[in-house]
Amino acid sequence: MMEWRWDFTFEILPRMLWATGNTLLAAGVGYLIAVVVGLVLMLGQRTPSRIINVLVREAVEFIRSTPLLVQLFFVFFVAPQFGIKLSAWNSAMLTIGLHFGTYLSEVYRGALEGVPKGQWEACRALNFSTAYTYRRVVLPQAFPIALPGMGNYLVGIFKETPLLATIGVAELMHTANALGAETYRYLEPYTMVGFIFLIISLPTAMGLRRLEAAVSRAQGNTHL
């Protein structure tokens, strides 16, 4: 039976908090990449060429139905085999961006399909250009539909970041492993990781729910 030691907890707290910063950075950068990749993958399925659409669709399905952990190892170990030097951090960002980009592309697709067809027809009847239709009519209506999904994946990426420890990114889990190896105490580091995740992800999830409510209210009030 092992007792919880508060002195040890406070001793390792600064290093844990420093690592939390890295975790947040990894989640934030990974999310930004995923948001952009998702957009590209969504547009890649709406091109005039059917072949491109089908190929992008299959690639999305492949990435979505295989584990992030295996993809992480694939990118990290395969790039050097072909002479590409990719640091653990860059491999991680690339993999997270691609993996969650496929999920976000589905969110965007659902949101665009959620805008009623009549909106497009009305814009065509008013002789708006496609770009203008997207910018002023479709996207403002698609955004509140996409928001819950986008928020979920922000928290989702945050919760997947411990996997990055496996290829050596110095985030929270990696630091907890290192502390455990140095001191032979695993109880405090691993428990602290759990609680740090909890105190970040619960308020974030709640904040996102508020944001969704605010956006849908604003949209409801401001449409012409």
Binding site: M1, E160, Y186, L187, Y190, T191, V193, F197
Partner: peptide
């Protein structure tokens, strides 16, 4: 839902033995 699966897994595998 608020914590990470890997953290839960490590906790069960590495910390529970410390509690017997």
């Amino acid at each position: 839902r608020g914590t990470s699966l890997l953290v839960q897994l490590y906790w069960i595998y590495y910390v529970l033995p410390l509690m017997g």
